[in-house]
Every structure is written in structure tokens, then in C-alpha cells.
């Protein structure tokens, strides 16, 4: 790793100030991606701003039927939360399936969505559930938050503080793991609730997580695995790499959509 400075932020204002003052300061949450990236010299932040000790940054609470998850809440805490299991068991299952136990006990929901890895699980869940990302300066709907590979609507000096997730009446998530990395080769999160029927796909899009309008229309009319299976998924705009061709990913989207509905 290149040299850097470490700041332990005591408040959100403190974190924002440290991010603004550093030449190339980055937020450090769990660091499960960032520290590996720094080791590979793909990132060399001048300053790391640790936000986990800020009051209210961790933990799950509810606001009516809305889940409010602090940005520094770990995947294991989300998976084990009674509120998440009650209001959105599919999201608890998603968190339980991220990476491996060591990652789940340190990695955070805020870190995952801020990184917006094209194969990460949370972006699919948040996009399908119509979540709102709350930051140090505003609230951003999931549709506007995720903007492409490793790209989000966040400004350089903006810190995610929590995620607000409306309860869905039906929701399911299924993924096909890339066996070596355990990341989603393709993951599909399907949800139905006040915001209508929303289907989000991770691991497959050239521009990262995306909603599939064909699956949404089919499942909006008939919430069944058969309806999902009847949708033709085109391979245009899908990733192709050594792990899978675009055509194979297109097929997997259909299969994972069926499994997501079956799991709901």
C-alpha cells in the first residue's frame, strides 16, 4: 500500500470536513474492497476517513413499514436483524449470501453500494425494492443512485448515512455464483410492493446493475415462475468475459428470475 493518513470521524460533519480537506480522501467503512484495492495499487487515497464510530451509523431500525439501515451496518447484522427478517426476508437472505463469513462480519451496506461493483448483491436488492439512499446532504432514489460500473451519484465529499427500504409484499433474490470469487455471475432480485413490480439484475450488465422491463411487465401481470420463464432475455448490453458469454448470462437472467419468484 502507498502511505496514507487515517482519520476516525466523530460526527458526519467531521467526516465531510476530512473528506474535503484531503487531496484524495476516501471513506473507509468495512474496507473489504478498498483495502484489497489499495494493496493492488489500484487505489491510493491520501486520507482514509473511518465512519464506523459515528453515532447512529450502525444498526437497523424501522419507520412504520420502512426499514432504516445505518450505512456502517455489516452484512452479518443485516442478515441477523429481526426487523429485516420480518419486513423483508429476501434482503436478509441476500445479506446472508454475500461473500464469506469474514467479509460479512466486516463489510457494510453503505460500502457495498458506494462501491457499486457490477457483481455486488446489494445494488440489485436496493434497486428492486425502490430504496432511498440518505447521505450527508440529500436523499437519492436508487434509480438515480446507481450510475454505471463503480459509479454512483455521490459527490466526493458526500457520505452515505443510511438506506431506507420500503417493505415489499413479495420479494425474492436468486444468484448464480462465480465459484471462485463467490460474486454473483448473475443475480436477480424481484419485488412487488407499493412501487409496483421491479426486477433488478446484477452481475450481467455492461453498465452495472439494471432493471429489466420485460421481466417487470411479465411479473406485474402474473407473479409466477412460468411468467418469468416466458420472457425472452436479449444478450445486447450484457457483459462477456472469461467466466461467461453474454448469451449465457442472458439465459441465467431468465433462470435466476424464475428462482427469485419461487423463493418469494
Amino acid at each position: 500500500m502507498y502511505p496514507t493518513k487515517y482519520h476516525k470521524a466523530a460526527s458526519i460533519d467531521d467526516a465531510v470536513a476530512a473528506l474535503g480537506a484531503g487531496e484524495e480522501a476516501l471513506v473507509l467503512a468495512g474496507g473489504q474492497t478498498l483495502l484489497a484495492t489499495m494493496k493492488q495499487h489500484l487505489a491510493s487515497p491520501s486520507d482514509l476517513v473511518d465512519i464506523r464510530a459515528i453515532d447512529g451509523m450502525s444498526g437497523v431500525s424501522t419507520d412504520g413499514d420502512m426499514l432504516v439501515i445505518g450505512a456502517a451496518t455489516t452484512h452479518a447484522e443485516v442478515a441477523g436483524s429481526a426487523d429485516v427478517q420480518r419486513l423483508c426476508p429476501a434482503l436478509a437472505g441476500l445479506a446472508r449470501g454475500i461473500g464469506d463469513p469474514a467479509v460479512r462480519h466486516v463489510g457494510t451496506i453503505g460500502g457495498s453500494i458506494a462501491n457499486n461493483d457490477p457483481a455486488a448483491d446489494y445494488p440489485a436488492g436496493l434497486l428492486a425494492l425502490g430504496a432511498t439512499v440518505v447521505t450527508s446532504k440529500r436523499q437519492i432514489g436508487a434509480d438515480d443512485f446507481f450510475q454505471g460500473l463503480f459509479t454512483t451519484a455521490l459527490d466526493d465529499d458526500e457520505v452515505i448515512t443510511s438506506v431506507r427500504i420500503p417493505a415489499a409484499s413479495r420479494a425474492g433474490y436468486a444468484k448464480f455464483r462465480q465459484p471462485a470469487s463467490l460474486f454473483a455471475l448473475v443475480g436477480v432480485f424481484a419485488a412487488q410492493g407499493a412501487g409496483g413490480t421491479r426486477v433488478a439484475v446484477t452481475g450481467a450488465g455492461e453498465d452495472g446493475v439494471f432493471r429489466h422491463v420485460g421481466l417487470e411487465a411479465a411479473l406485474g401481470a402474473d407473479w409466477s415462475a412460468a411468467a418469468a420463464g416466458g420472457v425472452g432475455v436479449a444478450s445486447e448490453g450484457l457483459l462477456a468475459d472469461i467466466h461467461a458469454s453474454a448469451e449465457y448470462r442472458a439465459n441465467l437472467i431468465g433462470v435466476m428470475a424464475k428462482r427469485a419468484v419461487e423463493a418469494s
Binding site: 487515517y6 476516525k8 473507509l28 474496507g31 473489504q32 483495502l35 484489497a36 482514509l48 473511518d50 464506523r52 452479518a76 463469513p101 469474514a102 467479509v103 462480519h105 466486516v106
Partner: peptide
């Protein structure tokens, strides 16, 4: 183990 839970000690800074 950190507070009883397994973590990768290579992926966590000592200050954390």
C-alpha cells in the same frame, strides 16, 4: 476473531 466473529486480519487496518 474480532469480538468473537471471524475476520480476515489482512483486510482490516489495525486502527479499525
Amino acid at each position: 476473531l474480532v469480538d468473537g466473529e471471524p475476520v480476515n486480519s489482512c483486510l482490516i487496518l489495525v486502527f479499525q
